[in-house]
């Protein structure tokens, strides 16, 4: 039911973990729906230089988390902010329809982390 890319990111997820003293962090999802994602980012000169994730969730949740970290690493904040859940799903060659809403939260976690960074670093904005 999953694409090869999803299974690749599920089996070998990129950037698992948590950045110590991150520039920003975002957590989305809830236990009721079975997906919780925590994304931590390191920002230098408006650029995301490092990103890590931790996820409780199904195969799609883990694969989207992993994919979003690959997509944003090295990007400036504005470019990163334009990444949507659909961008992530497309980069994984699609997700099963039932997963599009429940387990496709990685971009939301990213936006939450960027938001958190901006809030805690107002001088930079």
């Amino acid at each position: 039911m999953y694409s090869k890319k999803v299974m690749d990111h599920f089996s070998n997820p990129r950037n698992v973990g948590e950045i110590e003293k991150p520039s920003g962090e975002g957590t989305v999802g809830n236990p009721a729906c079975g997906d919780i994602m925590k994304l931590t980012i390191k920002v230098e000169d408006d650029k995301i230089t490092d990103v890590k994730f931790k996820t409780f969730g199904c195969g799609a949740a883990i694969a989207t988390s992993s994919m979003v970290t690959e997509l944003v690493k090295g990007k400036n904040l504005d470019d990163a902010d334009s990444i949507s859940n659909d961008t992530v799903a497309e980069a994984l060659d699609g997700l099963p329809p039932v997963k599009m809403h429940c387990s496709n939260l990685a971009a939301d976690a990213l936006h939450a982390a960027i938001e958190n960074y901006k809030e805690t670093h107002p001088a930079k904005k």
């Binding site: 299974m7 997906d35 199904c58 949740a61």
Partner: peptide, 13 residues
């Protein structure tokens, strides 16, 4: 602390 479907995928592999 873990979700069932990802365990099933791991088992399936």
């Amino acid at each position: 602390y873990v979700e069932g479907e990802s365990l099933l995928l791991g088992l399936d592999m």
